[in-house]
Amino acid sequence: MGITRMMDSITQYFSEAIARIFGPSDDAYPVTGVQPFSGDPLKETRRADW
């Protein structure tokens, strides 16, 4: 009886993992779309220690 219970728990463990990997996404991020860039680009400077 112990081996059967252990096999059931191993099967359940792997089936839940597979369902989580291949199931639909459960992300709850808001739909924001593309955000425009409103800053200045980084000014490149020469470093003397290179």
Rank of each mutant, 00 (worst) to 15 (best):
W50M: 13
Q35F: 07
F37V: 07
R47A: 10
M1I: 10
I10Q: 04
T45E: 07
S9D: 07
T11D: 06
I10N: 02
Y13Q: 04
E44H: 11
Q12L: 12
R5L: 15
A19W: 01
I18G: 01
S9H: 07
K43N: 03
E44I: 10
G2M: 03
D27P: 02
V31H: 07
S9C: 09
S9N: 04
D49N: 13
I21D: 05
E44Q: 12
A17R: 03
G39L: 05
A28L: 14
I10C: 05
Q12V: 14
P36F: 01
Y29R: 13
I10F: 11
L42V: 10
G33Y: 02
Y29C: 08
D27L: 07
R5G: 09
A17C: 11
V31A: 11
T11E: 03
A19H: 02
I18C: 00
D49H: 10
E16S: 00
W50E: 15
G23Q: 00
D8S: 13
A48P: 02
V31G: 04
D26H: 09
Q35M: 13
I18N: 03
Q35L: 14
K43I: 00
S9E: 06
E44A: 09
P36L: 07
Y29W: 10
Y13P: 00
F22P: 00
M1G: 11
S25A: 10
L42C: 06
M7F: 13
W50C: 08
S9M: 08
A28M: 13
I21P: 00
T4V: 14
D26W: 10
Q12M: 11
F22V: 02
P41V: 01
Y13C: 05
G23H: 01
A19P: 03
I10K: 08
K43D: 02
M7E: 02
G2Y: 07
R47I: 08
I10V: 09
P41G: 01
G2F: 04
Q35S: 14
M7L: 12
V31W: 05
Q12P: 09
D40Y: 12
V31S: 08
P24R: 04
T32I: 14
D40F: 11
G33H: 04
S38D: 14
T32Q: 12
A17K: 05
R20Q: 11
L42Y: 04
R46Q: 13
G2Q: 04
Y29N: 11
A48C: 06
T4I: 06
S15W: 00
G2W: 02
G33P: 07
A28I: 15
D49S: 12
T45G: 09
I3L: 08
A17W: 03
D40G: 12
F14M: 05
A19I: 04
S25Y: 03
Q12K: 07
M7K: 13
D26M: 09
K43Y: 01
E16H: 00
T32V: 15
P30F: 06
M6Y: 14
Y29D: 06
A48N: 02
T11S: 06
D8A: 15
R46S: 09
G33F: 01
Y13V: 06
P36C: 01
